[in-house]
């Protein structure tokens, strides 16, 4: 690896004396780089240099920072709660959360279900709307990216419709499907569609000319060009589109469910507001955030898997 000698120069600062102070190197932003420099640090330490280099693993340090940030956040929240008003303090929310998460999958009729069912129904709507958007958006993106005629026709429409809030499409969904649930899925479909189309088209358009020249000198068939060159080349862009779509879909589902009702995390938030159970609303906010984070991170991992260089 050519990066090795360079990396070694910026290794952790050495510890002066035997005071036991833990010195850390410049923390590279990239986790892989962090792992590398960490590995190198250990290797150097075992190479029997006259001095010792001590460095905690990067992930330990970043977790310490994360925990510190959380503690400060909860303290600030507690202080705000004590100032009065109706905001419940962290302890009250924690107590409510323990109750809620001890039985997340109960069901007492359509309007009273556990938080687990609510999250799952929301995820189901997102999956359906998003899946339909992928099925339409990715092929459409390919056509737009590959053929300038289609691109010329579609670009103004996409540009015009993209800034519209997907909730504005909700009545159209109600009109088309005559039911609340498909209308919410419809809103998810609309909002997921644009990032998917735009990023797929961008990926296809950015296929390097070198690769297309290879296809030309070999006279590859259109099918081979598609499977061996266009698709793998555009794949990282498509995954970016998927990631953005999922993010937007998870934002929109809460709002859509507030309007359509039924079972779902967004509806649950509204229901608890009507019951004035503010603890539950805060629990819902955290739950939505954590689920969104998991969705995002999963797709980041998928994206890494398909990045070549």
């Amino acid at each position: 690896m050519s990066a090795t000698p360079l990396k070694r120069k910026m290794l952790p600062v050495e510890v002066s004396g035997a005071s036991g102070t833990v010195a850390t190197g410049p923390s590279p932003a990239h986790p892989a780089a962090a792992e590398l420099s960490d590995r190198l640090a250990r290797r150097t330490a075992t190479e029997g240099r006259p001095y010792r280099r001590v460095s905690a693993p990067e992930w330990v340090i970043s977790s310490i920072y994360a925990v510190l940030g959380m503690v400060l956040f909860v303290l600030a929240w507690g202080a705000i709660a004590r100032m009065g008003g109706r905001i419940p303090d962290p302890a009250a929310v924690w107590k409510a959360a323990v109750v809620i998460f001890s039985d997340p999958f109960y069901s007492k009729g359509p309007n009273d279900q556990g938080i687990g069912w609510n999250v799952l129904s929301s995820l189901r709507r997102v999956a359906l709307g998003f899946g339909a958007a992928a099925a339409v958006g990715i092929p459409l993106g390919f056509l737009i990216g590959r053929f300038s005629v289609i691109s010329g026709m579609a670009a103004p429409i996409v540009a015009m419709l993209r800034p519209v809030s997907p909730l504005a499409w909700l009545p159209i969904g109600l009109l088309l499907f005559k039911a609340a649930n498909p209308a919410a899925i419809w809103a998810i479909f609309i909002c997921s569609l644009w990032p998917m189309i735009i990023n797929t088209a961008l990926g296809v358009r950015q296929v390097p000319q070198d690769y297309l020249n290879v296809a030309r000198v070999l006279n590859l068939s259109e099918w081979k060009i598609f499977t061996k060159i266009l698709l793998p080349s555009a794949l990282p862009f498509m995954i970016t589109g998927v990631r953005l779509s999922i993010g937007v879909a998870w934002l929109v589902i809460v709002a859509a469910e507030m309007l359509t009702g039924g079972v779902g995390i967004g509806f649950w938030v509204w229901d608890e507001w009507n019951n004035l159970k503010v603890e539950h609303i805060i629990i819902a906010i955290f739950t939505i955030g954590i689920v969104g984070l998991i969705l995002e991170q999963t797709l980041v991992m998928v994206a890494k898997r398909f990045t070549y260089n």
Binding site: Y211, V214, V217, N219, K228, Y308
Partner: peptide, 28 residues
């Protein structure tokens, strides 16, 4: 037009990065 009766080596190698060396050759 271009055709496989001429083998071209480009300055920047132009290998497809998602294929192994073997697969790059096999494609041709």
């Amino acid at each position: 037009g271009p055709g496989p009766d001429r083998g071209v080596v480009f300055q920047n190698h132009s290998l497809l990065p998602w294929l192994t060396c073997y697969e790059n050759v096999y494609l041709a």
